[in-house]
């Protein structure tokens, strides 16, 4: 499990737009991350983490999964590659997380071609699913 500063080994994003604070680990095709919503989060408004924050949290979970794979393939010292959201589909947001709540997101990589990975994501607070989507992440070489 990686937390705090260690997350920077896995993803290229930096403050103020880091939207995961914990990475629980990855398997061949899955990854799991967490985020506790703090009041000073750049995507918080009126005590809630807005849609942009939820989606960015999902995207960075995918980035962290890619970061782990990258280290496995290219060595532990490999820096996280720059990556971007290519496409988002079927993204349902049931409700917005409130300050103090902890999100956990599971991602499953369903297909990969070259530098594009297709992933399915589910975000929960406790046992309650609050968001799900299909996301394509585009990674630079």
């Amino acid at each position: 499990m990686q937390q705090g500063e260690e997350i920077k080994q896995l993803i290229p994003q930096r403050e103020p737009i880091m939207m995961i604070d914990t990475f629980y680990g990855a398997t061949e095709t899955t990854g799991k991350s967490g985020l506790t919503v703090l009041a000073d989060n750049v995507f918080c408004e009126g005590g809630q983490l807005r849609e942009m924050g939820v989606i960015e949290h999902i995207a960075q979970t995918c980035a962290a999964y890619n970061g782990v794979k990258n280290k496995q393939n290219n060595g532990e010292a490999s820096k996280p590659k720059l990556g971007y959201i290519g496409e988002i589909k079927k993204c349902q947001i049931v409700r917005l997380p409130r300050v103090g709540e902890q999100l956990t997101t599971d991602v499953v990589a369903t297909a990969q071609v070259m530098n594009v990975t297709l992933m399915e994501a589910t975000t929960k607070i406790g046992d309650e699913t609050i968001a799900s989507c299909q996301i394509k992440l585009f990674e630079e070489d």
Binding site: M52, I55, G86, I88, C91, I93
Partner: peptide, 30 residues
């Protein structure tokens, strides 16, 4: 990408004159 979505949302809010909650992002391609 999420900020680009956020800018679209902000302009839509301006247009309809109230806050919006995006509950279903059907498709979004960058």
């Amino acid at each position: 990408g999420v900020c680009n979505i956020g800018m679209i949302k902000a302009c839509a809010e301006e247009e309809v004159g109230c806050g919006l909650f995006i509950e279903n992002l059907k498709q979004c391609k960058f």
